[in-house]
Design a protein around this nucleic acid. Sequence first.
DNA 1: TCACCATCTGAAGAACCCTTCACATGAAAA
DNA 2: TTTTCATGTGAAGGGTTCTTCAGATGGTGA
Lengths: 126, 126
Amino acid sequence: MAIESCGTRVVDADRVAAVNVRMPTDRDLTDTADVFGLLADPGRLRLLLALLEGELCVCDLAAVSGLSESATSHALRLLRAHRVVSVRRAGRMAYYRLDDAHVRMLLDLAVAHTEHTEAIHPEREA
Amino acid sequence: MAIESCGTRVVDADRVAAVNVRMPTDRDLTDTADVFGLLADPGRLRLLLALLEGELCVCDLAAVSGLSESATSHALRLLRAHRVVSVRRAGRMAYYRLDDAHVRMLLDLAVAHTEHTEAIHPEREA
DNA sequence: TCACCATCTGAAGAACCCTTCACATGAAAA
DNA sequence: TTTTCATGTGAAGGGTTCTTCAGATGGTGA
């Protein structure tokens, strides 16, 4: 799975070798893909964007995201399992907050991009 | 689908309203989720990381990514459809390049993050 | 022209993901 | 204690996605 695997020919062997030495490990690759995967769902995206400004309880997150409370809970469980969000419990309420600096950067970048293209192409893009 | 929808109660109505006005449109949300979705696969991630440094032909991309040439072609088609990569044809060869500044930033950020956490936790994280 | 080769494509099957439903848990109010 | 309420959870379904296989396309060289 590393430097030049299966038996298919190669055109620019030097470039291929150069790219291969810079290629992250399998584990880092799947970890990164997993993080992107967490952001690849409109519902979870809404939850996380809502949390950008501070903590919210589950029912407010459901209201903001338009998801059912059950779907919200499932989504939060997934995000919690990946340590993207953390919980604070107060009585029977549960307050979630964004707890991953890398994900926060990705979200900020994505928001900035949509606002930017919105400003340039108010009619819509692509 | 906008400010306060389905009939579930809300705890902090002000925060919910404030978050709602900043929430991107449905369309922007799904577009963003789609972009993240494109990055949510180790194979495509490898292809795109390989293209960070310049164009490569399909067979070299297959060699670098460890994907079959057919799978590589399918993946490139998807990326092409979303205008993340573009093609230059030379005879029967096809040279792909990364053609989306936003995706490039996301990839750079992801790489920087893995290298950074690698430097801090050489043994492995999470 | 014919054979070859790089790339592309459609169909099919397996694996995976998201939502919903019904119910469980555990804290607070009655 | 009993009820109520916010949240959490498992199972099931319908949809989506990834890979492979087999074959198509179209440029190249003989």
